[in-house]
């Protein structure tokens, strides 16, 4: 291999990394706008225009960044950058619509789960370093909450991987996201297993608001209690970065759920349907059109998951106290997750 081709591949990867980051941020802000609009409509309000988050971010990025006197400056400024980078990196490992992940083969589900934990840690570290009592309380809550939802999250990942191991055999890495997405799990489990997987999906949906610090698990930035908690001292660019990080995190989580449980592509079905129609329809060259259909279908799936997992839940429940929230993840949700695992195992042996 000569140096030129290595350089070319490397350059292409850099271009793709920027492209995916850009798409991730764009989609994040777009769906944030959708989330705000639809929750406003559910509350009988008109709500902001869909592009409002773009305006908010533009404004935040141009504002002055204030660092509190007693804050540890480098941590305080570093936390939002880390918080943004982690979900963007996770996006490189996830299949987006019909496209396979950019860094295919370099990392798997376990890595993505670790990357998902980083924004929460960054928020907590940023909060602790900002020296405000409100931020300290918020950071403590963020850490407690993170420790609570990690268990159900891990249970869901393990269940999927265990089943995958059975489907694809011991040679293949069952944690590989490409493997998981090319073998839709629902087709391989029986009725009991299907029930188990449904419970696992429920568990993941329950973890969603906790990961994103949205109500009913918005304790870390509870506005009326501790005045936005971890973000109380954050302004300008730093706050804007946290804002973007949160939206990208939302896309990553929704994409993860799609990859694990709903990796279906519409183009396959469409193709089959066209073939079934036989000579009536002229044979359409799929190619680019198939890709387009799949992208639109992926965006639609994102929409549904964000609506049911984030928007609806966020407006339908009051904020829990932190001990109740922690209990909620440790006991009921973990039990539901374990039951799901049990059902999948039983379904496989029957």
């Amino acid at each position: 291999m000569n140096i030129e081709s290595i350089l070319e591949g490397w350059l292409l990867n850099v271009v793709f990394i920027f492209l995916i980051s850009f798409i991730g941020i764009f989609l994040g802000l777009l769906y944030k706008g959708f989330d705000r609009k639809i929750s406003a409509m559910m509350q009988s309000r008109i709500g902001p225009p869909i592009i409002q988050p773009f305006r908010d971010v533009r404004k935040l990025l141009t504002k002055e960044t204030i660092v509190p006197e007693n804050a540890i400056e480098w941590i305080f400024n570093g936390a939002p950058i880390i918080a943004l980078i982690a979900p963007l990196v996770a996006l490189m490992y996830l299949p987006i619509g019909p496209f396979s992940p950019l860094l295919e083969g370099y990392g798997d589900l376990i890595l993505v789960l670790y990357l998902l934990a980083i924004p929460a840690i960054a928020m907590a570290v940023g909060g602790f370093s900002s020296s405000s009592p409100y931020a300290t309380v918020g950071a403590q809550r963020e850490v407690v909450l993170m420790m609570s939802y990690e268990l159900p999250l891990a249970i869901s990942a393990i269940t999927v991987a265990w089943k995958m191991n059975e489907i694809v055999g011991p040679e293949t890495n069952p944690f590989s996201l490409q493997v998981i997405s090319s073998n839709p799990i629902w087709g391989h489990v029986g009725l009991i297993g299907g029930l188990g997987i449904a419970l696992i999906v429920f568990t993941l949906f329950a973890v969603l608001p906790g990961e994103l610090s949205k109500e009913p698990f918005g304790q870390a930035k509870a506005k009326t209690e501790i005045a936005d908690g971890v973000f109380v001292e954050y302004t300008g660019r730093n706050l804007g970065l946290f804002y973007i990080a949160n939206t990208v995190q939302m896309i990553v989580l929704a994409s993860l759920i799609i990859t694990l449980f709903f990796p279906y592509q519409l183009s396959n079905l469409l193709e089959r349907w066209i073939i079934l129609q036989g000579p009536i329809l002229p044979i359409v060259e799929m190619g680019v059109w198939a890709l387009l259909v799949d992208v639109v279908f992926y965006l639609f799936k994102l929409l549904l998951i964000i609506y049911f997992g984030v928007s609806l839940v966020r407006v339908a429940f009051a904020r829990f106290q932190i001990d109740k929230a922690s209990y909620f993840y440790w006991v009921p949700i973990s039990i539901i997750g374990l039951l799901g695992l049990l059902f999948v195992v039983v379904g496989a042996t029957v």
Binding site: R45, G218, R319
Partner: peptide, 11 residues
Amino acid sequence: HEIGFDTHMHF
């Protein structure tokens, strides 16, 4: 609103 339930504040 104080318990983070803005839906019912609006309602």
